[in-house]
């Protein structure tokens, strides 16, 4: 595939830089992308165009919604030292006050951010390699969201069957469409369910991997959530949880302020951390990020504590 094949992507990057003049990092990220990453990025754009009938401009509008809301919440966080909302009820009321397309626009904006936000981009790359040496029969992803990570897992990871759950009909529909668009239609390979993770019965499943990508900050009781991971795990289950420290967003309700706070939370709720990887804001050091309350994306690989 030649460079000219990415002309649409390059046009969108140009439009993003025009719309968001202070996000010059987008140009840096794009210039550092491999051909494979550009193909992935372009396929996400094509999927949105095909399935939702959107134009490039519509997609940029979705990113604008996601971006503006995140900036607004960043402003609130800097001014108040906390996230705006702390309960599902508050977040749901906000979502209901928006038009019916808001959630979809937000998910599409979030999907784009995997390629144009430094922390999200770094996590996207890390996610693929994190499962390189693991395999098993049954893989669970909790909170499939826009579906990029679930699609990647089904496509690339060495597990027999994949189960994805979410409480949002919109998300499940988007993920199903994403998989179908990628011609991944084998019913024996994966299953998507509308389900609240906390209601899953311990002992009814034998998951070899449990993945929760950027979910922990969205739940009211992250301790109970981690405990549920532990309850559903057997001694060899690989648990991969990603979350964020000091990272305001409209639907983030649990604020984590440091890696130590997260480590304690895992320890207190039945998990042993194998590896904690931090993706620091614009490559600043940890001390600087914590002092300035800059966002840090966190990846934790863990197992059930013995």
């Amino acid at each position: 595939m030649g460079i000219s094949d990415f002309s649409r992507l390059e046009s969108m990057i140009g439009q993003l830089l025009d719309r968001f003049p202070f996000q010059s990092h987008i140009a840096e990220l794009y210039s550092g992308m491999t051909e494979q990453e550009k193909r992935e990025f372009d396929s996400c754009i094509q999927f949105i165009c095909d399935v939702y009938g959107m134009t490039e401009r519509d997609i940029l509008d979705c990113y604008q919604i996601f971006n503006d809301d995140t900036l607004e919440e960043s402003k609130y966080f800097i001014e108040h030292g906390k996230y705006r909302y702390s309960t599902y009820k508050e977040v749901n009321e906000y979502m209901l006050s928006k038009d019916t397309h808001y959630m979809r626009s937000y998910q599409i904006g979030l999907l784009l951010s995997l390629f144009v936000w430094p922390n999200h981009s770094a996590m996207r790359k890390y996610f693929l390699q994190s499962f390189h040496n693991f395999k098993g029969k049954l893989y669970l992803e909790v909170g499939v969201g826009h579906g990029y990570y679930f699609k990647t897992a089904v496509q690339s990871f060495d597990y027999g069957r994949f189960v994805g759950i979410d409480i949002s009909d919109d998300s499940l529909h988007m993920v199903q469409s994403f998989l179908r668009w990628h011609s991944m239609t084998q019913p024996q390979k994966y299953e998507l369910k509308k389900l609240d993770f906390l209601t899953m019965e311990s002992g009814a499943y034998a998951f070899d991997a449990i993945v929760c990508g950027e979910v922990l900050e969205h739940v009211e009781n992250p301790g109970a959530f981690i405990k549920k991971c532990s309850d559903l795990a057997h001694e060899k289950t690989l648990i991969h949880i990603t979350t964020a420290i000091n990272a305001p967003a409209i639907d983030h309700i649990s604020l984590f302020r440091s890696p130590d706070e997260l480590a304690n939370l895992f320890c207190e709720n039945g998990l042993t951390i194998l590896e904690m990887k931090l993706f620091l804001y614009r490559n600043k050091n940890l001390e600087f990020c914590l002092k300035r309350k800059l966002p840090i994306t966190v990846s934790i690989l863990a197992r059930k504590a013995s």
Partner: peptide
């Protein structure tokens, strides 16, 4: 513009606006 000042990114922009 942002390109003229090192460290001008989304978050410093928010701090600037505040």
């Amino acid at each position: 513009t942002a390109a003229d000042i090192e460290d001008w990114d989304s978050l410093t922009y928010v701090t600037l606006i505040i």
